[in-house]
Write a protein that binds this DNA or RNA. Structure first.
Length: 568
RNA sequence: CGGGGUGUAGCGCAGCGGCUAGCGCGCCACGUUCGGGACGUGGAGGCCGGUGGUUCGAAUCCACUCACCCCGACCA
């Protein structure tokens, strides 16, 4: 095994690829690591593939160490399997579907809970078989509405998914904690300071769920963290204490004319009151039914919380037609007198008084509305989106917001799949019980992209050693000089003999600057330079990619020095 | 699915009714160079995303369509 730059099929680019805006995407294209096939579909070229295999191996080692047993499952699956658990509708258009030659509906698996549960159903009958962890590192398919940012969000991707099977909650907790620890080890070895945060477990998920987030400005997720007590949660999940408003004695309701006022900001300006003294109405369509949500004007609805409350599959803002058909007046809607649809309100409607709300007719609002004196709701609960500055749910300290990329997600699934698909075991008492499941995912390609997102500078990638495609970038300058070429070839041989993965820039016709720039772009952790100048001192220049300064090392000591550097 | 943008050589772009479609980088050959993106000479490389219109004539104008990117929606 070895690699000379002159033989490397992929080419580095001198000009910036305009398609890419995110750093990792731009750098991976520029460094010739990936090749786009379609929107959200990429081929991995040699450098990326080496790096991905290293990431896979780190994951494999850690999950094995935590007791995981690797398996390989089918990617092509019958649609029926997805109908059994009703996840065909849960996944909706994200499911890649096709038909076989007999016209049978099939899917390209987006994940493997159904298949793995059936494997366990066939193989586990007794509590003596539990606990168990099965895992796979395989390609999965999701027809995402909007692929973006290179490997961050794609439609075909490699994923490690582990599934745990336990006899009771306590055992599940152990499995869960063991996986969480394995995840921390994985991120650490990949050089990634990932945050573990509380997350929503989704429509089917059970109780606990955590996401691992790598903080980076280009991330698509937002997490809220408490600087004091360490509470950390995804915004979708985060609880928070909304800023209170003053409670006043209730006044009499009164209709006021508000010509042209259609927004909370407009209402607040027009009446000269803070937005927190208004109530906002938002209309949703939940599996086709219109839902009327009410929340204090300065807050936003958390759609994940709302979805969980409603137990629906599909939640989206209602269309203009739906709003019109329901007789609602956008801009002046209010829950007052409303009875013919489901009304959900956020608890914040109790945290203030004498609110301004819509009058259910254009150009008019009602002031001094108070709950429950003036209107009723069907569900009153927390549906607010916690934001930066809201109080920590544990200690009240103002929360801080951080953007990041989700690089892992773990769930306690509970017994949904085992009960639906009939995966039961007999406990000590001979009692039949459903297996308790957990699942644990990491996107391999996304981890690579996130690592580059986290580790780069203006010149290029700065690979962490454990996931670098090669450990050493050997640059030969002036290789037309036979003596230099001999020294470089020799060093290259000795490095590989020592097991040091070395990419050798053996190009004879490139200027030094080109080679240096390519070395910086590819970002291998250690750069060695052999040149006439260095050889005159019988030395090789050693420079770590993350450092600015280089040092000269005698030719005879280089291999040993690098070996030590790599072992770290 | 809504909003915005882009499709012309491997990459980055110009040309926007007129003749044989151009520039830079990259690529091939030869020579000179050789420590931070060198130079000379000579070359190769294009269904101007697709379809249909308008026109004597279309990369250029019109219509439709496809693809890709960005924002949003969405995203166990």
């Amino acid at each position: 095994m070895s690699m000379k730059f002159s033989q490397l099929i992929s080419k580095t680019m001198r000009t910036e690829p305009t398609e890419a805006e995110t750093a990792s995407h731009r750098l991976m294209l520029k460094a010739g690591m990936v090749h786009q096939v379609a929107s959200g579909v990429y081929s991995y070229l040699p450098l990326a593939w080496r790096s991905l295999r290293k990431i896979e191996n780190i994951i494999r080692q850690e999950i094995d160490a935590a007791g995981g047993q690797e398996i390989r499952m089918s990617v092509l699956q019958p649609m029926e399997l997805w109908e059994e658990t009703d996840r065909r509708s849960a996944f909706g258009d994200n499911l890649f579907t096709l038909e076989d030659r007999r016209g049978r509906p099939m899917v390209l698996a987006p994940t493997h809970e159904e298949v793995v549960t059936n494997i366990v159903r066939a193989n586990v009958q007794s509590y003596r078989d539990l606990p168990a962890v099965l895992y796979q590192i395989q390609t999965k398919f999701r027809d995402e509405p909007r692929p973006r940012a290179g490997l961050i969000r794609v439609r075909e991707f490699d994923m490690k998914d582990a599934y745990s099977f336990d006899a009771d909650e306590e055992s599940l907790e152990n499995s869960y904690q063991a996986m969480a620890q394995a995840y921390r080890n994985i991120y650490e070895r990949c050089g990634l300071p990932a945050l573990m945060v509380e997350a929503d477990s989704g429509a089917i998920g059970g109780k606990d769920s955590h996401e691992f987030i790598l903080p980076t400005p280009s991330g698509e997720d937002v997490v809220l963290t408490c600087p004091k007590c360490g509470y950390a949660a995804n915004t979708e999940k985060a609880g928070g204490v909304v800023p209170p408003t003053q409670m006043e004695p209730p006044l009499a309701m009164e209709e006021v004319s508000t010509p042209g006022v259609k927004t909370i900001a407009g209402l607040s300006d027009y009446l000269g009151i803070p937005q927190s003294s208004t109530l906002k109405a938002v209309f949703y369509s939940a599996d086709g039914d219109v839902v009327f949500a009410t929340i204090r004007g300065d807050l936003d609805v958390n759609e994940v919380k709302l979805k969980n409350v409603l137990h629906c599959h599909d939640l989206r803002l209602a269309s203009q037609e739906e709003v019109g058909a329901a007789g609602l007046v956008p801009g002046s809607a209010s829950p007052i007198g409303l009875e013919n649809m489901k009304r959900v309100a956020d608890e914040s409607i109790k945290s203030g008084s004498n609110f301004a709300v819509g009058a259910n007719k254009s150009d008019a609002h009602i002031i001094n509305a108070n709950y429950p004196r003036d209107f009723q709701v069907d569900i009153l609960t927390d549906i607010s989106l916690t934001q930066e500055g809201h109080g920590c749910i544990r200690c009240g300290t103002p929360l801080e917001a951080t953007r990041g990329v989700e690089v892992g997600h773990i769930f306690k699934l509970g017994t949904f799949f085992s009960e639906t698909l009939g995966a039961y075991f007999l406990d000590r008492e001979g009692q039949q019980r459903p297996i308790i499941m957990g699942c644990y995912g990491i996107g391999v390609g996304r981890l690579l992209a996130a690592a580059i997102e986290q580790n780069h500078d203006d010149q290029g990638i700065v690979f962490p050693m454990p996931i670098a495609p090669y450990q050493v970038h050997l640059v030969g300058l002036n290789l037309a000089d036979a003596e230099v070429a001999r020294a470089a070839d020799d060093l290259y041989e000795r490095l590989w003999q020592e097991g040091i993965e070395t990419l050798y820039d053996d190009r004879r016709d490139e200027a030094a600057g080109v080679k240096f720039n390519d070395a910086d772009l590819l970002g291998l952790p250690v750069r060695l330079v052999i040149s006439p100048r260095n050889l005159r001192q019988d030395s090789v220049e050693v420079k770590e990619r993350r450092d600015k300064e280089a040092t000269m090392v005698p030719v005879g000591e280089v291999v040993g020095r690098i070996a030590r550097l790599i072992k770290g």
